[in-house]
């Protein structure tokens, strides 16, 4: 079982803490201790990307990151992308608009990877989209509508920015 650790971190803007075994992954901590089951486990060896969360804004695979390693960091999960019951983020809206999913299992990771891309690269070209999402496997969609969603979200963000500039 090994050591136990007291972990304190910020999850979706809230301070959260819990006791965890040293071997517990961040994914298991989020799901089992904090009840945030929107983070999904597909391979548990860091390939499929279903468990992607944002650690200090960057996408990481929570299945191969220990909860203890996230101590003191800022974590955003799919539950924190938009306020509960509130409007969806432009990325989430675009995913719905283009039906960029089927079973939904990879969607949490896809949305977060797309959010991270657009946060750093508001106007990605196709190669940048493929690179940013290349570590997230979707078995349902063939990626066509997912790429469309990112383009739609990027275009919409760009439109918003233009409005701001005019004001």
């Amino acid at each position: 079982m090994g050591t136990r650790h007291r972990v304190q971190l910020t999850v979706n803007g809230e301070r959260r803490s819990g006791d965890t075994a040293g071997r517990t992954s961040l994914a298991d901590f989020l799901r089992d201790t904090l009840g945030l089951t929107g983070t999904h486990l597909g391979c548990e060896h860091g390939v499929c990307g279903a468990c992607t969360v944002l650690l200090d804004g960057s996408p990481v695979r929570s299945c191969i990151l220990l909860a203890a390693q996230a101590d003191g960091h800022d974590v955003r999960t799919i539950e924190g992308v938009s306020p509960p019951g509130g409007p969806l983020s432009p990325v989430q809206e675009a995913f719905c608009e283009t039906h960029a999913m089927q079973c939904g299992f990879c969607t949490s990771g896809m949305v977060l990877a797309s959010e991270a891309l657009l946060a750093t690269t508001p106007h990605p070209d196709d190669a940048e989209i493929d690179e940013a999402l290349g570590g997230n496997i979707c078995r349902c969609t063939g990626y066509v509508q997912i790429r469309e969603a990112v383009r739609v979200a990027a275009a919409r963000t760009a439109d918003d920015e233009r409005v701001v500039v005019r004001d």
């Binding site: 799919i78 938009s82 969806l88 939904g104 949305v111």
Partner: peptide, 21 residues
């Protein structure tokens, strides 16, 4: 027409068997 399932998936509110404990 909108696909009504999609909103719960993009917000992480699908309910898969691993989520049932």
């Amino acid at each position: 027409g909108a696909v009504r399932e999609d909103r719960r998936f993009v917000t992480g509110h699908g309910r898969y068997v691993a989520d049932i404990t």
